[in-house]
Design a protein around this nucleic acid. Structure first.
Lengths: 339, 339
DNA sequence: TTGAAAGCGCTAACAA
DNA sequence: TTGTTAGCGCTTTCAA
């Protein structure tokens, strides 16, 4: 069996209390005693039983993340990077990371219930927020600590990090219009996602200001996968008067849209322009390289986790609500329109 | 504060023992009593404190996964799908999933130590095995339960799932040679990874059998990212006598290689053929769609987790070591050579 | 069919 | 500076 502080106490002839304090480096322990105990602990190969510690402290030292997935073949570079961002920062702070994947809906919400009520984690990170977000309503109602990546409709009385999608899309709109595009399509993301709304509003309002209003017929919705980008673009290109530019709401759909255009014999970047959103690592190495709005996902993961860690330590957040201003990465998938 | 069994006991006027047994559905409790207790528990909104349960049972009900990542901008669709496969199956079995991301090396190994010695999980899934794998050596030496995705060099006395890379590459070699290719390059993966060796051996030996031996000058090594596929392909294409086909050891590098070829003005599928390995969802929607060896990653995640769950329950595995036979997905990135 | 009591490994009041 | 004691919430002998 594993070595316990009791074993150590017996060995050194002191009480478990003293051993506990020595191991936790309290300063009300005689220096020699402390050294002796610590050395003995190492010799005996002691490691604290974290189950016991956590139980005693009523803290799990764990942060939770439930990734919303559509369908089993979930495969999104976005989330793997976010995961790394959160996980690495969590490790820095001594937190474990508990991860689940659930399709949005009842099963997802009940995963939140289980995790919260079972005291499985000290705090949660909520990602890919929805306009009306059950998860956040629930966490608020039980006052469970969380930080979200993304905002919701209604009152924003919780800590979050988000990127300003309105600004992101303005950059895209400006860029395309400057290149001469007037007939612009978009492949939006599901409207229940909060960011969809910001991005669509941003795109629509800016294009209107620029006298190139978004044609409702050219607004499609995809599910953020490459496949749906492909299919929506395919359909858009069937139009007798097809768009000269396609604005996809994420990189994956943009890649799909590029493939569709290329399969129709179009040259992306001259015959048609395509833009993405996220700046996933692949964007720089696609053919052609993708013009896209940068979203520093890894750093966002870091920030969200950092904020949560502070909340859990009852430290003050210097910024409870962070709205990042995005940059546009202009690459070869966009070019001057030839029409 | 949260409701405990003590609260319930007080309310119904019975002992905590009886309450505990009723809630765990023991059959030595009077049916009426049991019903009363269970109903009261629901009314009071009781949920067991998993911290206490776990401590008492000396089980974490948690499975661990440490994802090896290179660099912070880690973004691999492969891992997100594997994660979903493991996580969903873990949830089916009532296990939580603890995830860390660590670059291979000392920090990674010490994460294993911490997790094992701190009793943080009941068992581990090891992925992307190396030829000489510290992680596995360690887990074996302390007899900690684990299942791996991938094999290692030397004795294979532990449960694993793997896909037969030798066969996978034979399929690729047969396909390319049948299309007339004789001058074939490959972008291999880092040689310390066990699967690299199987794939390289498979490719090399089959090409030899087919009288189109692999030219050592055409064997490059990438790091599994799209970027490295791009760079290695770029370099290969500089050759005065460039290859007619490029075999990439994963899809991501294949995408990079396609971009490189296309940027050089080549048409992939006719001027040059490119193959991948994994069959990530994007492979079907790239331009052109990618010929690749299928690796059912989600299912592999399921299997690995299922096997681990059985180990932890001391159930017998019907198959302790699974070697999957891959299929080839032929798409438009490969075609008859024109040279 | 029920209850009393012990204990999992650890921390933390409080006392000495 | 150290020890005594209690207790975290739960399960599980053992006895009634």
């Amino acid at each position: 069996m594993a070595v316990t502080i009791k074993d150590i106490a017996k060995r050194v002839g002191l009480s478990v209390t003293t051993v506990s304090r020595a191991l936790n480096d309290y300063d009300d322990v005689n220096a020699d005693t402390k050294a002796l105990i610590q050395q003995t602990a190492t010799e005996m190969g002691y490691t604290p039983n974290s189950l016991a510690q956590r139980f005693q402290k009523r803290k799990t030292d764990t942060i939770g993340l439930i990734i919303p997935t559509f369908g089993p073949r979930f495969s999104d570079p976005f989330f793997s990077e976010l995961l790394a961002g959160i996980g690495n920062k969590a490790a820095d702070h001594g937190y474990d990371l508990l991860v689940s994947t659930r399709p949005p809906g009842a099963a997802e919400l009940s995963a939140y219930h289980q995790i919260v009520q079972g005291h499985r984690v000290d705090g949660l990170v909520v990602v890919r927020t929805r306009r009306h977000d059950d998860r956040i309503d629930y966490l608020r109602s039980v006052q469970f600590p969380f930080v979200s990546f993304g905002r919701v409709e209604g009152e924003l009385d919780f800590p979050f990090v988000d990127e300003d999608g309105v600004v992101g899309m303005k950059l895209i709109a400006d860029h395309l219009v400057e290149l001469g595009h007037r007939h612009i399509a978009c492949i939006a993301s599901p409207p229940e996602l909060m960011f969809s709304q910001y991005r669509l509003d941003g795109l629509r309002s800016r294009l209107k200001e620029l006298n190139a209003p978004l044609d409702p017929n050219l607004v499609r919705v995809g599910d953020l996968t490459q496949r749906s980008g492909y299919e929506q673009a395919k359909d858009l290109l069937k139009d007798p008067h097809p768009p000269t530019a396609v604005v996809a709401f994420n990189d994956l759909m943009a890649f799909g849209a590029m493939s569709a255009a290329q399969n129709s014999g179009l040259v992306v970047g001259s015959d048609i322009s395509v833009t993405g959103f996220d700046n996933t690592p692949m964007a720089a190495h696609s053919h052609p390289p993708l013009t896209t709005v940068d979203q520093p996902i890894y750093q966002i993961g870091n920030m969200v986790c950092e904020m949560l860690a502070k909340c859990l330590n009852n430290e003050d957040l210097e910024a409870r609500q962070v709205l990042l201003k995005p940059d546009l990465n202009i690459r070869q998938s966009t070019g001057r329109t030839t029409n």
